[in-house]
Design a protein around this nucleic acid. Structure first.
Lengths: 228, 228
DNA sequence: ACCTGAACACCGTTCAAGT
DNA sequence: ACCTGAACACCGTTCAAGT
């Protein structure tokens, strides 16, 4: 939550005897997070992966919270959307799709973000980029902030609650469970479950919703400052 | 995840010597969840609140996971949207707004749902209701499933990542932190932060995005089965 | 039949000590 | 200066025992 922590540069960590650096710890942490999930990312386990004593980590990060913030920041640095579109709409669309794909590859990032807001430099950079796209596209500061927030929430929400987070086997189980429900009680659900197998790909659904939101934002924008 | 657990009726728990029932436990759990959050909801703490030994709870629920599922199910039972609209659009809109408000009042529900999908009877009932609204409105099984999923994900995502989750003091802090960033690095962000104080209310933003999605769904529907 | 304390295998973190 | 084991206050849950 604190935006005014000592930046990484001013707090390089110890001059390690073990070849340990903040960066190496963060890499190992993101690895563990992506491979085994949020629940397995413990200080003890991470230290074990690195072959050091648990408490050694506290020489590089004051607490697990600080480490998690740093993991997020380092991960987000890897999100560098290539923006080639010509209109604000194409541009922000590319940004959001890149963010969605990024979050799909790093589900742990969504989980961490879920528990607390991120105001870390890397995250701010992304927000700044998106917002300035909108400003350049003719949105007022106010309007741009709302539009970005809406798109951001949508994208994170999709990454968090959309399908595709779980492995394929889980999904098959779910479809099977739904299909076998009593049709008297859940007619619409059972029908939908049968149709679900050949349903739209997740990313396609994401993009469709995204386009709906962009349609709306575009309409609002061209009508000038609407309400509020 | 399992949809075929023994329903509550067939597993009434012990004939308590302490006046304890599944229901009383669930009430206490939801209370604790809403008041102190997901992290405080521990078996030990819950037992303490109820004035019983920790292990007593395991006579009523096989595990914490099973208890959480039951908490969710009980909570969702309280979500009974009053649907007075005449068109599918008005109807599903009312459902989603009711869901959003419900989730705002019970943030813990979002947190639990985040960690695993819910296929509990209460949750299924809500889905069934929403889906059949759409079917009645002329959506195909396939189309209705996708539309509902999109709206559901949006609503949960907004409840999870939208503002308003945290207390007002946190938000003020955030705005202050953003405003004090170096304007050279984050011009759009700083501008937006200053404008943010008089920004749109959260629920208004939620409804606006919701309407955008509904606009899109309506357009698709009247154009008949689009792609996929 | 219902309830429970002790114990086990885990957490994050403090503290005092090692080199 | 860098690293760490022991210890503390927590988890969920098993197990054996109480009534």
């Amino acid at each position: 939550v604190t935006a005014s922590k000592p930046p990484a540069a001013s707090r390089p960590g110890p001059r390690s005897r073990l070849g340990l650096t903040r960066e190496r710890i963060l890499d190992a942490a993101l690895d563990l997070l992506d491979r085994e999930g949020w629940r397995q990312l413990t200080m003890r386990r991470l230290a074990e992966d690195l072959g050091v004593g648990t408490m050694t980590l506290y020489g590089y990060f004051r607490s697990k919270d600080e480490l998690l913030d740093a993991v997020l920041d380092a991960a987000i640095e890897k999100l560098r959307p290539t923006v080639t579109g010509e209109t604000w709409r194409e541009q922000i669309r590319q940004v959001m799709i890149a963010m969605y794909r990024f979050l799909m590859e790093h589900p742990g990032v969504v989980e961490i973000r879920f528990n607390r807001p991120i105001l870390t430099p890397g995250a701010l950079k992304v927000t700044e980029a998106g917002m300035s796209l909108l400003r350049d596209g003719g949105f007022s500061a106010d309007h741009a902030a709302r539009a970005y927030r809406l798109l951001f929430i949508y994208t994170f929400g999709f990454a968090a609650f959309g399908p595709g987070k779980r492995p394929e086997s889980d999904r098959a189980e779910t479809v099977a469970a739904l299909s076998s429900l009593p049709r008297e009680l859940y007619p619409a659900l059972v029908d939908a479950a049968s149709a679900a197998s050949e349903s739209m790909a997740d990313e396609t659904l994401f993009e469709r919703g995204l386009d709906f939101l962009l349609d709306g934002l575009e309409r609002d924008r061209s009508q000038g400052g609407q309400n509020s």
